[in-house]
Design a protein around this nucleic acid. Sequence first.
DNA 1: GCTAAAAGCTAATGCTATTAGCCTTAGCTG
DNA 2: CAGCTAAGGCTAATAGCATTAGCTTTTAGC
Lengths: 187, 187
Amino acid sequence: MPRAGLDTAAVVAAGAAIADEVGIANLTMGLLAERVGVRTPSLYKHVAGQEDLVRRIAALALSEAGDAVGGAVQGYAGRDALAAAARAFRAFVLDHPGRYAATIGVEPSGPDDPVATAGGRLLDGFTAVLRGYAIKEPDVDHALRMLRSLCHGFATLQSANGFQWSAEVDESFEWLIAFTDRGLRAL
Amino acid sequence: MPRAGLDTAAVVAAGAAIADEVGIANLTMGLLAERVGVRTPSLYKHVAGQEDLVRRIAALALSEAGDAVGGAVQGYAGRDALAAAARAFRAFVLDHPGRYAATIGVEPSGPDDPVATAGGRLLDGFTAVLRGYAIKEPDVDHALRMLRSLCHGFATLQSANGFQWSAEVDESFEWLIAFTDRGLRAL
DNA sequence: GCTAAAAGCTAATGCTATTAGCCTTAGCTG
DNA sequence: CAGCTAAGGCTAATAGCATTAGCTTTTAGC
């Protein structure tokens, strides 16, 4: 029996891919094993169990989202940066609904938890956006939370096909960016 | 064997209560059966299965959230209405995290789906808030989606203990209400 | 009181995650 | 180059959970 040459990262990446295809709720160890060409119990050599797998997928998703947002912001400031960050974040969630869904309900166990550090890096991307607005220090944290809530809420609601939101969802999203931009500049 | 006098509504209510206590992911048919004083298979006389149960819990949660928001708005207008609605919604999600979590990822099958009608009623509450602002028609839908995204995002992120948000979360929420109010009045 | 549907129950099935224990490969060491 | 060791795989077994089948008992209407 030739060896599969697996490692934890490969298993997690495959799990994230499956989650995007069939939804995180339908990600089963058997499906994952089949995908990576191995029998189910062998997965436990790379991952401590399903819960651990989901945590790792969540950390991966947050890390990738952080890269996407951070990269999109590069070279822009103010409204352009805000729009770039928001669009990049939403695009990521819509392109990878399963792995992003893995982040919902995962609580970081401590500051050193990969989930926490990846989440922090995602926040850094949004922080960079705020730097383009002249915001007084006490407001920065609040504005950050608002940005995160807005993007998270909109993207997950749309990804779940929430509430008959028929067509012009893109239009609503752009409207939302403009609204937020005006509000931030007014601070 | 005396009969338990169950019906679908009682089973769903008990399921929602368990979801709030242990999380929707840990809501098991056995746990629910024990809670309502019946053997597991008997539940299937009232509910088609676990998926159906979760859908019904989601519909209940949306309906209750709609009642909470609608009731809170009564007698207020403008900023007061906005604050009342937002606070009522957040309080509901924090008080009933499990049943609200059931709504995530549930897609209404059609316009007659109880999930859809309950979701619609929740939207009505937010619509009432917007009526207090003089918003031009083409903006109403967008503003509605923004309000929903903001509340959903903030409440679910906090409920999941998202991102080390230490203390002043309440303060951030009030800040967010003020921010939104200013933006809406500027339309 | 009689009947039929509704609401329970026990028993059985099948799927999923997980653990235990064994075997083989790959890489390093003498 | 022989041999040792750890890592990565496998089969077999266990346990929990959802669900179905089929039987029994209550209850409500006639």
